[in-house]
Amino acid sequence: MIRTTITGITISLALAGCSSNPAGENVRGAFYREAGSLIDTGHFGNATMHNTQIMNGDKQFVYDLSQRFASEVMTTVNFAFNSSVLDAGAIDTLREQAHWIRQFPEVRFKVYGHTDKVGGNSYNKALGLRRARTVVNYLVSQGIDGSRLEAVVSFGETQPLIVTEGKERRNRRTVTEVSGFVDGHQTVMDGKYAEVIYREYVRSAEPVTGLTGVASSNLEVDSGIDGGE
Rank of each mutant, 00 (worst) to 15 (best):
S84T: 05
F109C: 00
N218L: 14
G24L: 04
A70W: 03
T48G: 05
K125Q: 11
D40Q: 06
S154Q: 08
A70C: 01
S217I: 10
E25F: 11
V188L: 09
F81H: 14
T187L: 12
F155A: 15
V188K: 03
F104R: 00
G42A: 06
K117T: 09
V153H: 05
S84N: 15
G128Q: 02
G191E: 14
T187K: 06
L94Q: 10
T76W: 08
T174R: 08
E195P: 03
R33W: 10
N51L: 13
S223K: 13
H43R: 10
A215F: 06
R173W: 07
L161T: 05
S154D: 07
A16G: 15
N82R: 15
V73H: 04
D145I: 03
T187M: 08
D92M: 11
S154F: 08
T158M: 12
T41Y: 08
V163G: 03
T212Y: 11
G42S: 05
G17Y: 11
N46P: 00
M189H: 08
A35G: 05
G180Y: 01
Q60Y: 02
G156W: 03
A23K: 06
G143Y: 01
L149I: 09
G227R: 13
V196Y: 02
H114S: 12
S66V: 04
F155N: 10
R3M: 09
F61A: 15
G119L: 13
K110S: 13
A205E: 02
A88I: 07
S179I: 03
F81C: 04
G119Y: 06
R68H: 12
K110N: 15
T10I: 12
E206I: 07
T52Q: 12
I9D: 02
L38N: 14
V152I: 12
D226G: 09
N218F: 10
T4H: 13
E200C: 05
G128Y: 02
V196P: 02
R102C: 05
I6V: 15
D87H: 07
E229D: 07
T5P: 00
G210W: 03
T164G: 05
S84M: 08
